[in-house]
Amino acid sequence: MSLSLLLKVMLNRKIVTILLLLQLAITLALLLNSVLLAQQTHQQLNQPTGLELEDTLLVQLKPTTPQLRMYPLLEDLLQRQVRALQNIPGVIAAAYSNQAVITQGGNNGNIYDVDNEDRTNISSVPMYFVSPDFFKVLNVNVVQGELPQLSSYLDGDTQPGVILTQRLTERLFPGESVVGRQLNRGPVSAVISDFYGQRSAEDVMYNSIQVAPPYAVDWGYALMLRTAPGQAGAVREQLTTVLQTVEPNIEIYYIRSLAEQQRQLYRNEYGLASLLTILTALMLLVTMISSYSSAHFHVLKRQQEIGVKRALGASKRLIFIELLSESWLCTLIGAFLGIGCALILNQALAQVISIPSLNWWLPLITSAILLFSVTLATWYPATIATRVSPATATKAL
């Protein structure tokens, strides 16, 4: 059947065709963006973090009295809490930090080599102030230098040494020896393996750490524990009681494993991907029903025409392909319109969440899914059309 005849058949039922094209376009736009978002969320949840997610616990809390949120009472509180956590059976190491890892944002700022500020200035790198066992909790490896002991810049004129992650080191000092080099945050003491810090940083693996107590924690701080395999649940049950025994004037915001922290970080994308998937499935189902109804009604109206074609020698196979071709053409036009709708929806979603731009191959895959679904829906009506006998053409004569 020629393309012009297929278009003529579609134009004979303008309203039905327009509604079906609109439905196909919206369905493809939802399908394309839901697949894109689901793919991105899956990649984010499975990206390497450099951390032991299941066996590391994170406690976010804040003292309720102003005095405990400031040095020197804050330092004493942190040390008492860490000692108490280390005494819990099943805890391998415990440490404090001014902020959590695997988080959206927090305490960060620029960092640069003081001898080459113009080339090395990085605008957003997290600043961690931690206890010495922080590195043992994260189970990171020392690549260069030695980890410093606990120091306080509040008691002297020198800045505590800075520990950098590998990826940040390569950005600041590509291929160079770094221990002893001076940064705006202090001298470099060591380089450690990468770990996921802040999502809002220039790179999630860019981290700068100093072994020193935070001066103040008006927004709270984090306690972190690495547990023996399989002990995270038992340790977690004791944390609230232990910490409130050490100091009752605290508010515990949450206790999570780092695996839960990672899922929480991407909850918006995960939730929206799930919602779009459900909407897409419903739209796909409605589109299949509409395609079936349209094709079935079309076959019933054209029984006499099909009977004449059969009487003139048209085979069942030709009739079958003709009916499917009409559905295929309608689907391809709808898919073309749907790609435009998908671009608009993609730009709208980008204003709310982080979502990648459309690539060239995903529209082809989603269009193929849509084409398969419509073909499946119109298969039975097309089969009915092949059963129309030539005698049908003579009944109305």
Results as ranks from 00 to 15, higher is better:
residue 1 M to R: 06
residue 4 S to Q: 13
residue 5 L to A: 15
residue 6 L to N: 15
residue 10 M to Y: 04
residue 17 T to N: 04
residue 18 I to C: 11
residue 21 L to K: 00
residue 21 L to C: 04
residue 26 I to M: 14
residue 28 L to N: 07
residue 31 L to T: 10
residue 32 L to K: 03
residue 33 N to A: 11
residue 33 N to F: 07
residue 44 Q to V: 05
residue 49 T to V: 13
residue 50 G to I: 04
residue 50 G to T: 06
residue 54 E to R: 13
residue 57 L to D: 02
residue 62 K to G: 07
residue 64 T to D: 10
residue 65 T to Q: 09
residue 69 R to W: 02
residue 73 L to Y: 10
residue 75 E to M: 04
residue 78 L to M: 07
residue 80 R to Q: 13
residue 81 Q to T: 02
residue 83 R to A: 15
residue 87 N to R: 15
residue 89 P to L: 07
residue 91 V to A: 12
residue 92 I to C: 08
residue 106 G to K: 00
residue 108 N to C: 02
residue 109 G to K: 02
residue 111 I to L: 13
residue 113 D to Q: 01
residue 124 S to F: 03
residue 124 S to L: 12
residue 125 V to K: 01
residue 126 P to I: 10
residue 127 M to H: 13
residue 129 F to P: 04
residue 131 S to E: 14
residue 132 P to I: 10
residue 132 P to Q: 14
residue 135 F to C: 06
residue 138 L to H: 05
residue 141 N to C: 03
residue 145 G to M: 07
residue 153 Y to W: 14
residue 154 L to F: 15
residue 156 G to L: 03
residue 159 Q to V: 04
residue 159 Q to G: 01
residue 160 P to K: 04
residue 161 G to M: 01
residue 163 I to R: 02
residue 165 T to M: 02
residue 165 T to R: 00
residue 166 Q to M: 06
residue 173 F to H: 02
residue 177 S to Y: 03
residue 179 V to R: 04
residue 185 R to S: 12
residue 189 S to F: 12
residue 192 I to Q: 06
residue 194 D to G: 10
residue 198 Q to N: 08
residue 201 A to F: 00
residue 204 V to M: 10
residue 204 V to E: 12
residue 204 V to Y: 05
residue 204 V to N: 04
residue 206 Y to I: 02
residue 209 I to N: 00
residue 209 I to P: 00
residue 211 V to H: 01
residue 211 V to M: 04
residue 212 A to W: 02
residue 216 A to E: 14
residue 218 D to E: 15
residue 225 L to R: 03
residue 231 Q to T: 04
residue 232 A to W: 02
residue 233 G to I: 05
residue 233 G to A: 15
residue 238 Q to H: 08
residue 241 T to I: 09
residue 245 T to P: 00
residue 245 T to H: 05
residue 247 E to R: 07
residue 248 P to C: 08
residue 253 Y to R: 04
residue 255 I to W: 01
residue 256 R to Y: 09
residue 258 L to R: 00
residue 258 L to G: 00
residue 259 A to H: 01
residue 261 Q to W: 00
residue 261 Q to I: 07
residue 262 Q to N: 15
residue 267 R to I: 14
residue 272 L to N: 06
residue 276 L to M: 13
residue 286 V to D: 12
residue 287 T to Y: 03
residue 291 S to P: 01
residue 291 S to N: 04
residue 295 A to F: 01
residue 298 H to Q: 14
residue 301 K to N: 06
residue 304 Q to M: 09
residue 310 R to K: 15
residue 316 K to L: 00
residue 317 R to M: 09
residue 318 L to P: 01
residue 320 F to M: 10
residue 322 E to K: 13
residue 325 S to H: 05
residue 328 W to S: 12
residue 333 I to W: 01
residue 335 A to N: 09
residue 340 G to Y: 11
residue 342 A to S: 13
residue 344 I to C: 06
residue 346 N to K: 11
residue 346 N to W: 08
residue 346 N to I: 15
residue 348 A to H: 06
residue 349 L to K: 09
residue 350 A to I: 09
residue 354 S to I: 09
residue 354 S to Y: 14
residue 355 I to H: 04
residue 358 L to P: 12
residue 360 W to M: 09
residue 361 W to I: 11
residue 364 L to S: 13
residue 365 I to E: 08
residue 370 L to V: 14
residue 371 L to C: 11
residue 375 T to W: 07
residue 376 L to I: 10
residue 377 A to F: 13
residue 383 T to S: 14
residue 384 I to Q: 15
residue 387 R to N: 08
residue 388 V to H: 07
residue 389 S to D: 11
residue 392 T to N: 11
residue 395 K to W: 06
